[in-house]
Simulated scan of single mutants.
Amino acid sequence: MIKPTMAFVSFKDITVEFLKKNNIDAILLDVDNTVSPPSSKKIYDGVEEWLDEIKKSGIEVIICSNNFRKRVYPFAKSVGLDCVAMSLKPLPFGFIRAEKKLSVKPKNALVIGDQIFTDILGAKLAGMKSALLVPQSPDKGKTIKLRRKLELPMRKKLYGEDYLSKYNLLERDDKK
């Protein structure tokens, strides 16, 4: 239930060609540590260009975040997307709301995020494909640090020690 359908280092690695080849009609995109640093109004370099390319291809994109409306709505508006805030991931309710907004079948939707126990598990429960990304920023909150520790054995099993070392996922908590 917690193994992602696919894994990438960054959103930039997910191409239109790859999405089309895998029959993806819609993307449900997490925010924090996926396309933006946690609690930041900034977006990572390349997000706008990537989103433009995806949207031009006809693939729909919606933000699906556990964060509060106050955080998610302004962010979504700044990148020209609709959104579902307080999605309660991993429960499927937010994914189902996003699916209905986009009129897409779950099997043709891809959830992109950085957390196994919210994004990936939630995608599975909603019948959607999932793409696990390497967290793009350091983790600050105690709960996310705990979740990262719980994810570590699964990430090791999926990707191996070299992968974890390369992206500093083993030492991440020690650097704060």
Rank of each mutant, 00 (worst) to 15 (best):
A131V: 00
V31N: 04
G80H: 09
K129T: 11
K70P: 01
P74A: 03
C83Q: 00
L146Y: 12
D45E: 15
G122L: 02
L125H: 00
F93Q: 13
I54S: 07
L91Q: 11
A85E: 02
T34F: 02
S65Y: 07
C64D: 09
N67Y: 01
R71Q: 12
F117Q: 05
D52Q: 13
D52L: 11
S130Q: 04
K89E: 12
K20W: 10
G141I: 08
K42C: 07
V72N: 00
K55S: 10
S40P: 01
L88T: 03
G80S: 09
Q115F: 04
F117G: 04
S39K: 15
P138N: 12
N22K: 13
K77I: 06
A85L: 00
T143F: 14
N22D: 09
S137H: 10
S65N: 01
V61M: 08
D32R: 07
S65I: 02
V84S: 12
S137W: 01
K101R: 10
K129H: 13
D82Q: 09
N23T: 11
S40E: 04
V31I: 15
E151G: 02
G94D: 06
A126F: 00
A85F: 10
L51Q: 01
E49H: 11
K56I: 01
P74L: 05
V61R: 07
S57N: 04
P138S: 11
L150F: 09
L132P: 06
K140I: 14
Q115M: 09
L146N: 03
L125F: 06
K142P: 08
V104Q: 05
R69E: 15
P106Q: 08
K56C: 07
A26K: 03
G141L: 14
E99P: 01
A98F: 03
Y44F: 15
A98C: 10
D82H: 03
L81A: 02
F95Q: 10
K70Y: 10
T34E: 03
K100R: 15
A26H: 05
D32I: 04
Q136L: 10
K77A: 13
S36E: 05
I62W: 00
P90R: 12
V79Q: 05
R71S: 12
L81S: 01
K107H: 13
P135L: 02
L81P: 02
F93I: 15
N22S: 10
F95I: 05
A131L: 04
K140S: 15
D30Y: 09
